[in-house]
Write a protein that binds this DNA or RNA. Structure first.
Lengths: 186, 186
DNA sequence: GTCTATATAATGATAGAC
DNA sequence: GTCTATCATTATATAGAC
């Protein structure tokens, strides 16, 4: 079912893996070149703006992927709680069951934050509002819906971070299971 | 009441601020020198092993500070739920009400993870067990206590991360308030 | 203990051939 | 589109005077 990936998409995936694992400053051109099998000069052919351009392109790509895999489910016509559980499942997919970081969160740290921080903040506020909207449709008052949305995002990103800190993806997997159960019950 | 800080403690605090804000690779010697008001060579007088030694010392320091401010409260003789709420308050103190990162989490990312990852993982497992122990004493079965501990840590670290991603410390402050309420209500 | 000056290595980035 | 070779800059780290 997976549509065949273009050359550029494969390239982007290879670069994303390095940025996710090492962060913006930790991802050196030597490592990026090695991960893609290209020389440094070839990377500059694809990204004339160098590392900064790579980060921008990859950030857009990650946001689009999260939208497609996870947040998209929030705006369907289905039952609100089904939308939430579908969203959680999509996020689990994006995070590869707790085995990888979210690039958006990675690029919000270190010096990349100076460049992308406000964009990312806006994005997270939009996402949070999108979740809150679904909770409202499920019967919560606006204030409570907003906090429930913040709590859900916190638990997803928190357990993903803790999975990394504990060096154990199952921390994330259990959180996904628990959250899914919480919102599918009733 | 705060005991006067030694020269070295002040120095460490200044260095920690840079590592917290920029990460391990993002914290350059130039920035570290500027933050301390010292020249680079003077930093090597205090830390002959350079950046790597700074990170090791600062990591130990951060773990000790977290122990002193937060986790210490888990092993008092008080009521289990009081211990939990005291722990949360202490973590809030360490995180400066959501305005700063946890250095331990910062040093678990990027290339510093290669050096400190397993130590940090062990530390988090110990901390999690310490919280679980309290939940057990409050009446939970071991399995449930363990998951409740993971959930609490996830929410604290997740809301702290989300506060950064949203560029809004109140995300963390509200989580602390909500968690405190959850565990202080009977 | 701190400094200036400098060495050494790595990084991001380019030029130009193919 | 990819390469080799190289550049300029920045990074970590050291020597040695004070």
């Amino acid at each position: 079912m997976a549509s065949p990936k273009s050359r550029k998409e494969v390239l982007i995936d290879q670069l994303v893996a390095v940025f996710r694992a090492r962060g913006y400053e930790g991802a050196t051109l030597t490592q990026l070149a090695k991960a893609t099998g290209l020389g440094k000069a070839s990377l500059y052919h694809h990204f004339p703006g160098g590392k900064a351009e790579m980060a921008s392109v990859l950030l857009r790509h990650a946001v689009a992927e999260l939208q497609q895999k996870a947040f998209r489910h929030l705006t369907t016509k289905r039952d609100p709680l089904v939308r939430i559980t579908n969203f959680i499942a999509g996020f689990d997919d994006y995070a590869e069951q707790g085995n990888t970081h979210c690039l958006v969160a990675v690029l919000a740290q270190g010096s990349a934050a100076e460049t992308h921080g406000s964009h990312i903040a806006q994005q997270f506020q939009d996402w949070q509002a999108s979740i809150a909207q679904v909770f409202e449709e499920s019967g919560m008052k606006p204030k409570k819906a907003k906090r429930a949305a913040a709590s859900l995002l916190s638990e997803l990103y928190g357990s993903l971070l803790l999975a990394k800190l504990n060096n154990d993806p199952s921390v994330f997997q259990r959180a996904v299971k628990r959250l899914t159960k919480t919102y599918s019950a009733q």
